[in-house]
């Protein structure tokens, strides 16, 4: 039964990534990121189906309390993911975004940033783990664009390179530090 719990965790982490990506796609009016939110929604649905199927198949061996809890959690998480999809949907529709949306996002506690890594910058050649971006400045990289390739929710082994465009979320005060790390300091 371990698999069900792992799937639920994956649903949770994915739904959170989706929300970050959705807000980022709004802020930068970025269709690629918005489309990824759609792809991830599919993944979340598949996970939920798989969880439901497994619970039903193992109905007799499983503690009913546990089945109930897992069902309910999966349901709420799926609704978080749906909300992210609704946000991304605004970007994918062919209408201009209301300017207030962008202003509101910029006022938010959680800040979204987009930075290009310049050659020779501190982050050039570092993996996400080595960069200590999450533990030193509280920034979480949610997507990396390298030319036409995107990597969403990159794991910590991913190495950053000059020319990469990183999308991150974190506290407002860290933006300045991220500027220093992406540029070349003389």
């Amino acid at each position: 039964m371990k698999a069900v719990e792992e799937e639920l965790l994956e649903m949770k982490d994915t739904s959170e990534l989706m929300l970050d990506l959705a807000y980022s796609s709004l802020l930068y009016h970025n269709q690629d990121i918005a489309e990824e939110v759609f792809n991830l929604e599919q993944k979340v649905n598949e996970l939920q189906d798989s969880i439901s199927t497994k619970i039903l198949e193992n109905n007799e061996d499983m503690d009913p309390d546990k089945s109930f809890i897992l069902f309910k959690m999966a349901d709420s998480i799926e609704r978080f993911a749906d909300a992210a999809l609704d946000i991304a949907d605004v970007v994918l529709r062919d209408i201009e975004l209301h300017p207030v949306i962008k202003e509101s996002l910029k006022d938010s506690d959680e800040f979204m940033v987009r930075k290009e890594i310049l050659k020779g910058a501190f982050l050039d050649g570092k993996t996400l783990e080595e960069s200590e971006m999450t533990t030193k400045i509280g920034m979480k990289v949610i997507a990396i664009r390298r030319g036409d390739n995107w990597s969403y929710g990159p794991d910590k082994e991913v190495k950053l390179k000059a020319g990469d465009i990183i999308f991150a979320r974190g506290p407002r005060e860290s933006e300045e530090q991220l500027n220093k790390w992406t540029r070349v300091n003389l």
């Binding site: 929300l19 959705a22 709004l26 349901d75 709420s76 998480i77 609704r79 978080f80 749906d82 909300a83 992210a84 609704d86 946000i87 949907d89 605004v90 529709r93 209408i95 975004l97 209301h98 207030v100 949306i101």
Partner: peptide, 15 residues
């Protein structure tokens, strides 16, 4: 579009 974003935030709180 703006209301759709607001409504998504509200859906999150419902969930």
């Amino acid at each position: 579009g703006l209301l759709q974003v607001a409504s998504a935030a509200e859906q999150i709180s419902d969930a």
